[in-house]
Design a protein around this nucleic acid. Sequence first.
DNA 1: CAGTGGTCTAGACCACCGC
DNA 2: CGGTGGTCTAGACCACTGG
Lengths: 253, 253
Amino acid sequence: MKITPTSLPVAPESEPEPGQSRYGWLAAGMRSRIVQGEWPPGEPIPPEALLAKTHGVALGTIRQALALLVAEGLLERQHGKGTYVKAGLGGASMMRFFRFRHGSEDQPVPQSRILRVKRRLADADESDALGLPTGGSVLQVERMRSLHGRPCLLEHLVLGLPRFDALAESNPKDWDDLLYPMYQRVCGVVILRAQDELSFELLNSADARRLELDTAHPCVRVQRKAFDMSNQCVELRTTLGDAFAFQYTAQVR
Amino acid sequence: MKITPTSLPVAPESEPEPGQSRYGWLAAGMRSRIVQGEWPPGEPIPPEALLAKTHGVALGTIRQALALLVAEGLLERQHGKGTYVKAGLGGASMMRFFRFRHGSEDQPVPQSRILRVKRRLADADESDALGLPTGGSVLQVERMRSLHGRPCLLEHLVLGLPRFDALAESNPKDWDDLLYPMYQRVCGVVILRAQDELSFELLNSADARRLELDTAHPCVRVQRKAFDMSNQCVELRTTLGDAFAFQYTAQVR
DNA sequence: CAGTGGTCTAGACCACCGC
DNA sequence: CGGTGGTCTAGACCACTGG
């Protein structure tokens, strides 16, 4: 007696879990293909019609799945052209919020110099934010970002360590100026969303010296949590910079 | 002699402009019914099936229109129950646009005192931003916002004038602490989105005096453009506040 | 022009809610 | 149970893009 008498070319393991909508299942599959790099960032994915046929599903269903991924920020659709994998939150697009009034130039990517890299145990707040087990460890990074040879931003990073091992074992001299694309290339971590908290304070003497500013100079502190595709926070970042060279834009809904 | 011999309850002027999708048109109509109060906040709107029938359109089309309004935050759908007009559209939910955090955790609504209201011609930038004809006029408002009797925010507003005539003719003494709900009630203007630009500077003596701070005290400047349902900018707002009492949270995508 | 996504239809069946 | 929104189908035609 045949248990599965179907002779149709059904893809293996293509059983939507009960309680899971079909388009949700399809979206999950495509999400995974994006994460695994099978559909690389910036490249178009197969057209709707093909996807519908290969998955044995109606057009509308595929479109619902695609709509999900568009809402998540993974895909971008262009009428008449195709559906493209988003190039992620590139470091450059994150930096668009900072503007430094040196000369009248338009925000080139600041150069980066790694000051310190250290492996250490995570404290309670970090374990909580990064979803690490108690006793988990992190990679702590300090770096200075400069424009035209002048220091402008002092950054302090904390990265969860099972995930960023590949980075921890590499040479900081080889790191890129833009970290987020490097996270993706080296560790397969795609940053899709971030939450910034801005506040204002006066520089202490140590930070002031490194930024070549006076002690008690006004500065901006941006505390960022960066999230990956599964909405897990994977990076804690604190950035200090001259308040008078600062500008920030935000959408409110 | 009857001019409209039709016996069907067809809505007048129901011609989707060319270049406008049908569901976009339907959404506009329903949006207007919400704004006009025909579908009051917190109440359910007619079921999809009925809407589809009365508009002589397929179910899927109505659903697309509803999805638009849900995305705009005007509607809320509940499986098995109905589709509801979001409550608090005219309430404290507008506080989500108020992004400052002052020291303590909670966020009471600051009291508002109108300092000055003036009708004047718009300059070039304002005409451009607010979509006014050349030579158009605006309503300029200055107000102080206070928490627990202490001045904390100095605001400077510019409102396009054909649109806000009703406000211009009312008594500023009667204005609410929260302006956006009042815009809706008095002028039928619903603010759905805003864009903030933050920068830091030092207070001039006049502003410092009004904020009860020292001249050259560090302060934050938030320049906001607020947009209505048709994505037209209808308010320009500049807010000044003590930098040390400042905190701001933003999502980055 | 061919290929893509965008709109729209007219149904069907399922899942949830409250009575 | 009846009524609601949620999912899905199998088409059709339109609008945009590029060669």
